[in-house]
């Protein structure tokens, strides 16, 4: 194919427009290398196309230029003219590798910074939680102490309540005889009561009013059975005195009396120290 034929074949027009087939492009480029006239003609076409572009040129807004030059002057990597990956330019592989390298380094630095900040935040949060926890621990311990004291008090009350209930049951039992023991002539203010169940033979004592004895002495209850005093045991004073105190058992008695004896009780009652005495009613 001679150069003139190429020029008039119409391939150059398609080549210029960018729609020539791969085969046409190969043919034309081979002809351009072979015939300077073809190369010159292609270049003439190219200049025409570029002239067509220039005809349609439009002056861009001035701020685009300002912004462009700001960008170039203010970005350090732009000042140094660092290449960026661009698929339209040559050597994209090398550039993208460099970019990946520096990117991954930057990425690591960013990640490290983010992790550090995250760690600091968590430190702060957990330290605050720890402080709160310590406060709660103190509170918890004081609550535990007060709960224990409430519990022991509650147990105390429970015991008291049970004792009272027990006392009530005894007092309310119709089989139980109530034996009031008023004060003797020597101790007219004194008063005590015996609750006696003749069937079960159980005997309970309630101190209504007796003076607190010295530490070496104790009150002792006696049952008078057929004219003879029978020991029914010593009893406590103080807090215990407010409750019914279980004494020794007896199935027979005509009378009950309390004397003040040496600690632990006596074999025979000291008649001068008789505080209270009462007959079985009926």
């Amino acid at each position: 194919m001679d150069p003139q034929h190429f020029i008039s074949s119409g391939i150059i027009e398609l080549y210029m427009a960018g729609i020539a087939s791969e085969e046409e492009v190969r043919e034309l480029e081979a002809a351009m290398a072979q015939f300077p006239a073809v190369a010159a003609e292609v270049e003439a076409y190219r200049r025409n196309m570029e002239e067509y572009i220039r005809l349609q040129g439009r002056t861009p807004e001035a701020d685009i230029k300002t912004s462009l030059f700001n960008k170039i002057n203010n970005e350090p990597n732009l000042q140094e003219g660092e290449p960026v990956p661009d698929q339209h330019l040559q050597q994209p592989k090398v550039v993208s590798m460099q970019e990946t390298k520096s990117l991954s380094w930057k990425w690591l630095a960013t990640a490290a910074a983010v992790l550090l900040v995250g760690s600091l935040v968590l430190n702060y949060v957990f330290f605050n939680r720890y402080k709160e926890f310590r406060e709660y621990k103190d509170k918890y311990q004081s609550l535990l102490v007060s709960q224990n004291s409430i519990l022991s008090k509650s147990n105390l009350y429970k015991t008291r309540l049970e004792q009272m209930q027990e006392s009530m049951e005894i007092i309310q039992d119709p089989k139980v005889l109530k034996v009031p023991m008023p004060g003797t002539k020597a101790f007219p203010e004194a008063l005590a009561t015996v609750f006696w169940n003749p069937q079960s033979q159980e005997v309970y004592l309630k101190v209504n009013k007796l003076p607190e004895p010295t530490t070496d002495k104790q009150y002792q209850l006696w049952a008078i059975v057929d004219g003879k005093p029978v020991d029914m045991g010593v009893f406590e004073m103080g807090d215990t005195a407010s409750l019914l105190q279980k004494m020794k058992v007896t199935g027979k008695a005509q009378m009950f009396a309390v004397t003040l004896e040496k600690k632990g009780g006596a074999l025979q009652p000291t008649m001068e120290q008789m505080y209270v005495a009462g007959k079985i009613p009926g």
Binding site: E50, I53, Q56, G57, R58, T59, P60, K65
Partner: peptide, 8 residues
């Protein structure tokens, strides 16, 4: 060159 390139 900006007018021509802007036109494109």
């Amino acid at each position: 060159y900006s007018p021509a390139l802007y036109g494109v």
